[in-house]
Design a protein around this nucleic acid. Structure first.
Length: 222
DNA sequence: CTATGATCATGA
DNA sequence: TCATGATCATAG
């Protein structure tokens, strides 16, 4: 187990050591085996890089680097070097609905300070041969945050009205709400328009690739 | 079940 | 081709 970085500088220094390495090389250093593909190991790349960088939050609802308050996200890149998938942020909180503000929302806390780690994700490249790109730290600009806040407030308004089941991934310019569960039959507690609990399929917030593509493009300014 | 980490797979 | 909805693994 690698000790957590004690400073932002140390974290970035560790990232530099990973830049230009392959997933196979990193796995070898940690004595881990590389799966054939990600079909049954969807979170493998993220977990590998967390271990390599010394993330210590485990599966707690905390930023990956607890002391630094920094969340790490891998950014899967397609053959053109652009983000390939949306980025999961967190599940929608179904408790305390009606009294959550953007300022203390889970989404805002998660995205307050993010270490983005680009990783090749073109399926034509064997997993072990995929390269790590240069990671960078990001904090939302006031404009970016206002966009996220607007999407979040629109979605939360509907959830508070008990319309969570009607929300589709089509809504939200940069932040969307999509299913997030082991499968579509699992149920969680939700809230109806009358304020009573009922069963619904859990959903989570995701950043659209359009948003992360802009972050990648503007990464020098962050 | 909920949290962590995400990508898969299919329809449009 | 690409985004939405569905799904996979693991820990507690």
């Amino acid at each position: 187990m690698i000790t957590p970085p004690t400073s932002q500088k140390e974290l970035l220094a560790r990232c530099e050591l990973l830049t230009g390495k392959t997933l196979g090389q990193i796995a070898a250093q940690l004595t881990l085996t590389v799966p054939i593909d990600l079909q049954r190991h969807k979170g493998w790349v993220g977990s590998l890089l967390e271990k390599a960088l010394g993330a210590d939050a485990g599966n707690l609802a905390e930023p990956d680097f607890v002391a630094l308050g920094i969340e790490m996200k891998t950014l899967p890149l397609n053959a053109n070097g652009l983000p390939k998938e949306s980025t999961y942020v967190c599940t929608v909180a179904m408790h305390q609905t009606g009294e959550v503000s953007w300022q203390d929302s889970w989404v805002r806390r998660k995205l307050a300070h993010v270490l983005w780690v680009p990783v090749e994700a073109d399926n034509a490249i064997p997993l072990a041969e995929r390269y790590i790109g240069q990671a960078w730290l990001w904090q939302p600009t006031p404009y970016q945050e206002s966009c996220l806040q607007r999407d979040w407030e629109e979605l939360m308004d509907r959830i508070i009205l008990g319309e969570q089941d009607e929300i589709t991934g089509l809504e939200g310019e940069y932040l969307q709400l999509r299913p997030k569960a082991a499968h579509s039959r699992i149920v969680a507690k939700g809230i109806s328009d009358t304020g009573t609990m009922h069963k619904i399929n859990p959903k989570g917030f995701y950043l659209r690739t359009q948003f992360t593509r802009q972050l990648l493009q503007n990464r020098e300014s962050n």
